[in-house]
Simulated assay, not measured.
Amino acid sequence: VAVAVEITGAAVGVLALGFAVSRPAFLALALALVGVIAAATAVRPERRRFASWTAAVLFLGAAWVRLAVWEVTTPEAYTLPVTVPALVVGFLRRRRDPEASSWTAYGPGLAATLLPSLVAAWTDPEWARPLGLGVAALVVTLLGARFQLQALLVLGGGVLALDGLHELAPYVVQVVGALPRWLPPALAGLLLLAVGATYEQRLRDARRLRERLARMR
């Protein structure tokens, strides 16, 4: 009975969010309400892990949508006051329980600021925000590699890569446009040949990287 009720409730929640997509203000409210339901479900021990993550994602989504509705151009002013105490709480939890996952301790706090800042950086014509975000993501990535924390390494590295891609893309387009038309396909073909010739080695490297990442907390 419980599973059937949960599936029905989840389906109704998804349907409600679909109806609210066209009106962002109501979408933020719907995300928050569904997040409250998910947080209440997390009280049950057998649902705690999944429901708690779902509630965190929904609350973050509601906050981001609300910032977009308010046309906030500096989301860091709203997200950093949430990120700092969240990271402090995560640090204290890791001190009490060193086996706690870094995703549980630091993931929500980092995502609360890094992801909205990344969206803002992609639409910001100035250089200050992308530079600051890149430096912050680099520091987070280095801390993740130093202390073997998976959440910091993945979130920081992902944001750093996307931020660098956005900043370098115009120059890459200019360089490609200045080259002869036959050269980019030829370089792509050579790259594919090189990858194919070393396929087994690349596969072993990928497996080692995945295993090393899986060993991180």
Rank of each mutant, 00 (worst) to 15 (best):
F19D: 15
T74V: 14
L138N: 04
T198K: 01
S102K: 11
V5L: 12
Q201T: 13
L15N: 12
T113G: 05
L27P: 01
Q150R: 06
G144Q: 04
A51F: 01
A137C: 03
E200T: 13
V36I: 15
R48F: 15
I7S: 05
T74S: 10
F147P: 15
V173S: 06
V172D: 08
V195M: 08
L165T: 12
L160G: 05
V21D: 14
V21R: 02
A63S: 13
L29M: 10
A25G: 15
A151S: 07
L92Q: 13
V72G: 08
Y106F: 15
F59R: 00
Y78N: 01
R207C: 13
G90T: 02
E46G: 03
V3M: 14
L155Y: 04
E167H: 07
E71S: 08
L92D: 13
G144N: 01
L31H: 06
A86C: 14
A120R: 06
L191Y: 08
L58M: 02
A128H: 02
L152N: 00
L183R: 01
A197N: 11
A128G: 14
L143H: 02
L152I: 11
Q150G: 10
F50C: 05
L33V: 11
A51K: 06
A188P: 13
P98C: 07
R207K: 10
P170W: 01
T73D: 11
Y171P: 09
V69Y: 06
P185S: 04
G158T: 03
P45E: 11
P24C: 04
L110Q: 09
A56P: 05
F91V: 10
A56G: 07
T41E: 09
A51Y: 03
L191D: 12
A100N: 14
P45H: 02
L155H: 00
G109W: 05
A56S: 08
G157N: 07
E71N: 04
R215N: 15
T141I: 01
A4W: 11
G90M: 00
R94P: 14
Q148L: 09
A68S: 14
A194Y: 05
L80S: 09
L80E: 05
R181Y: 14
P125E: 04
S102C: 02
W122V: 14
P75I: 02
F26D: 12
S117V: 04
F59A: 00
P130M: 00
V3H: 05
L15V: 15
R146D: 03
A56Y: 00
L187F: 00
A40I: 12
L209N: 13
A2T: 15
T79K: 00
L87P: 09
A16W: 10
A111E: 06
G109I: 04
G196A: 00
G18A: 10
L168Y: 08
A145I: 11
L142F: 14
A197C: 10
V12A: 13
P130V: 11
A16F: 03
A194L: 12
R207V: 12
A38G: 07
A77E: 15
